[in-house]
Design a protein around this nucleic acid. Structure first.
Lengths: 228, 228
DNA sequence: CGCCTTTCGATTGTCTAACAAGTACACATG
DNA sequence: CATGTGTACTTGTTAGACAATCGAAAGGCG
């Protein structure tokens, strides 16, 4: 069968669509979402729209106070640092434990080869396999809660990405090489080195994002132009 | 001022009370919570009760499928392992980074001294300062998302505790000593050793919980009787 | 007697309509 | 300029209702 069918409730369906619109940049940061707007857009009753909005608020994608209109969360430089540091915390410990068992997840290898394969195209094409690479590492330890936590971080990372999508921040070859080295370090059991390399890997991505979103001057002036 | 005032909505207030009743064991694992029950208990309309229930479902404290009654989640041995391993992942990396800065959080010292102070009392009295000790370490790195994640884990740990509260699983002196050694290792910059000790600390607690809840024979036979 | 089907009560999903309560912003007033 | 007032918009909550679904009990059949 082609994809498991899903009898989702209306609330879930609307929440899923809103989530998608946030991740694709259709709904930009700071944009307001009134209950009546959502209700009329999807032609449902206001309580239904309300429930959808509150679902996304619980996920952390929307923000709202009592009696105030919900807004798409705004991710400033401090949020980006918080997100990427949280990623580093989760993932570096994962790398240590994978290295302890010398367990290289096949999905991660696959995802990284896809990064190597795409030579050009839209600058955001690398995001999907990149996220899949990191998720494969996380999922490899088989901890349900860790995977859930990391996925919520990935959602926020995607929001950061669409926010600066006009810039080509990402050097596919560099990303591929660093991933490759991380996998090699896991295979040879060097957990500390893998964790440290990951720290640099994420730290670099983080600072480029911060510079691109918070920079006063043009980003090409603030960033190192070449990274090979 | 003595505590910021909070004008919480009815939904939030009910959710908070239900959460409290879950943590105190008033609502036991597996117990069903129909919307009408909650509505009549708190004398509110059903949609309000529904929203409260869905809030707790989003937090992971209740579980429910479409058209099915919500139940308090049941934490079996595999869940306990998942929770404690997730704790270890988060916290051991935190210890490494604290050790790197040789930063011993004052709140953690305080919480541990409270553990030393209580010599007797209810067996669960140690849980609160124990959780506070670990939370202090987590909060010390100042990462909002990591703190949030850990707090959700702490909630589940509390549920585990009330589930086996009849047994005295906890040796206050042992806990205090291990905490103390962890703090010392942070102070001397030995991150790896601190992380490893934490692993043992959490691993022991986890296995005792698992044995207590899943053991076929009486727990005093399955567990090492003394731990000094 | 045991198994399958049907029926029924209980529960949830969603809607309409409505009122209360709060926020934000413009406006008038001192 | 600071303050108070008022109004439009939005959200919080309720009541009642109907459809859809689930679980289990009751009944029929081999």
């Amino acid at each position: 069968m082609a994809g498991r069918i899903a009898a989702v409730s209306i609330v879930e369906a609307i929440a899923a669509d809103l989530r998608n619109r946030i991740f694709t940049g259709d709904l930009v940061s700071g944009q307001t979402l009134t209950e009546t707007d959502v209700a009329s857009t999807y032609e449902v009753a206001r309580p239904t729209a309300k429930a959808s909005i509150e679902k996304l608020v619980a996920e952390g994608l929307l923000d709202r106070g009592t009696h105030k209109t919900a807004r798409v969360i705004e991710l400033g430089p401090e949020s980006v640092r918080d997100i990427y540091l949280a990623r580093a915390y989760l993932e570096s410990e994962v790398l240590r434990r994978l290295a302890r068992d010398k367990a290289v997840p096949g999905d991660a290898v696959l995802a990284n080869s896809e990064i190597a394969a795409l030579q050009s195209g839209a600058p955001l094409d690398v995001v999907e396999p990149d996220m899949r690479f990191h998720l494969s590492l996380i999922d490899a330890v088989g901890n349900e809660r860790i995977s859930r936590m990391y996925r919520s971080l990935v959602g926020e990372v995607r929001m950061c990405m669409v926010r600066v999508q006009s810039l080509h921040l990402l050097d596919n070859a560099l990303i591929h090489n660093e991933h490759q080295r991380i996998l090699e370090l896991i295979e040879s059991g060097q957990g500390d080195a893998a964790a440290q390399l990951l720290d640099e890997h994420l730290g670099r991505a983080r600072e480029r994002l911060v510079a691109a979103m918070g920079g006063t001057a043009g980003p090409e002036a603030a960033l190192p132009s070449t990274l090979d």
